[in-house]
């Protein structure tokens, strides 16, 4: 019985996914503005931690972390449409890497589970 994280490929899968995922985010005008002026290395590290979490892997994120981290973005207009965009890019990234549809749906559900914390609701 394998875990979602194991089925997806564990940390190597995260490493393979992060560049693809982050490129999609930077190329999407809907969300790229939130990354303006941020340090790319720092962002890549954060995206790796985020992907590890939604892939069902070990993580130290708490609801409070997610709220605090996204509070300034919410002040700048972060809303459901942006969370939707992130979930979409997660899905297309995993599809590119050959993940099973059922696993992609599970990842989306985990990401969605953080929606209210991210949006500080």
């Amino acid at each position: 019985m394998t875990t979602l994280y194991e089925r997806l490929g564990g940390q190597p899968a995260v490493d393979a996914a992060v560049d693809i995922f982050y490129r999609k985010m930077l190329a999407d005008d809907k969300v790229s503005g939130f990354f303006d002026g941020t340090d790319m290395d720092g962002q890549i590290a954060k995206q790796k931690a985020f992907l590890t979490m939604v892939f069902g892997g070990p993580n130290n994120y708490t609801g409070k972390n997610m709220r605090d981290a996204h509070k300034p973005l919410v002040a700048r207009g972060l809303d459901d449409s942006h969370v939707d965009a992130v979930i979409e890019h997660l899905g297309s990234t995993l599809k590119e890497l050959g993940a099973a549809d059922a696993d992609i749906a599970e990842v989306a559900a985990i990401a969605n589970g953080a929606r209210n914390d991210v949006l500080n609701r």
Partner: peptide
């Protein structure tokens, strides 16, 4: 950094 990354260079 951003330009070459978007053009396909691996972040690592």
């Amino acid at each position: 950094k951003k330009k070459v990354f978007l053009a396909g260079v691996a972040s690592k």
